[in-house]
């Protein structure tokens, strides 16, 4: 049975306990940040930050709203990252988590391009960099525990359970309080469905969620990757070579990217 997490934005108080709990459990490094005129930080998901809160101020005809949404890997039912990965580093587990084997990663970053949510991140500042992202706390999941973020949530905004049950719960909440929610469970159908589900008082576009159809994102990469395995091997070898060759140049460029974001 696939597990999932339901995020109810109407219950989230933006305390960011989830953000710290994630770093704490995964022993991820802190980032060097600066206040850029927002309560949000770090600025993006990154190799060291697998989840973060986004705060959106919305002034509409229904008055002013401040909406808090949580970003992390959505753990797609049909993950595009996995099909895009030429060395099979990603795996969709039966529990629902999309995990990856860092030892297999060659740093090609196809997954970053393939992901419709922009989740996988690259360790730009490591000598041997890997792709890193939220693992759904797969180590906890296997031990029967909820992910660290959901455990830390004080207000009931994050519920962990079986995806099918959470989907039913999400629909029940919308049905019971139609004034409180927009009639949309984000993740039910998006990109073929995701393990993380969202309900909210505002349309998801207004908080920066990509508008996606029900097609699996993997359909675009699947045929290519599976049809021509010899090509993939060649590509893999080639990419690895190029990667090592140009690592230093990329690293510098990447640093420029990040610092631009910080200004």
């Amino acid at each position: 049975m696939s597990k999932g997490v339901l995020f109810d934005a109407t219950k989230c108080i933006g305390c960011r306990a989830c953000q710290v709990a994630c770093k704490s459990w995964n022993e991820n490094r802190s980032e060097d940040t600066a206040n850029r005129g927002t309560a949000e930080n770090p600025p993006h998901l990154s190799a060291d930050t697998w989840t973060k809160m986004r705060f959106t101020e919305i002034e509409g005809k229904d008055g002013f709203q401040w909406v808090f949404t949580k970003l992390q890997c959505m753990h797609c039912e049909h993950p595009a990252c996995a099909t895009a990965c030429i060395v099979g580093a990603f795996e969709k587990t039966k529990e629902g988590a999309v995990v990856y084997d860092a030892k297999k990663c060659i740093g090609c970053r196809y997954c970053m391009v393939a992901c419709p949510f922009g989740v996988p991140a690259f360790e730009w500042d490591r000598p041997i960099p890997y792709i890193r992202k939220c693992t759904f706390c797969f180590d906890r999941l296997k031990g029967g525990m909820a992910p660290s973020c959901a455990t830390a949530c004080p207000s009931g905004a994050l519920s962990f359970g079986d995806r099918a049950e959470l989907l039913a719960e999400a629909k029940r909440r919308i049905e019971t309080a139609p004034a409180r929610y927009v009639p949309h469970v984000y993740g039910e159908k998006e990109a073929g469905g995701t393990c993380w589900l969202y309900i909210s008082s505002v349309p998801f576009e207004s908080v920066g969620f990509p508008k996606l159809g029900p097609e699996r994102m993997s359909v675009f990469s699947d045929p290519l990757m599976h049809a021509v395995p010899p090509v993939a091997v060649v590509v893999a070898g080639l990419m690895t070579g190029i990667y090592w060759f140009s690592k230093r140049r990329e690293k510098i460029a990447a640093h420029e990217d990040i610092s631009e974001e910080k200004e």
């Binding site: 953000q19 770093k23 802190s30 060097d32 600066a34 206040n35």
Partner: peptide
């Protein structure tokens, strides 16, 4: 504490 400082790094 670095994990808290990264979230609220500066006096504002």
């Amino acid at each position: 504490l670095p994990w808290l400082v990264e979230m609220m790094p500066d006096m504002y």
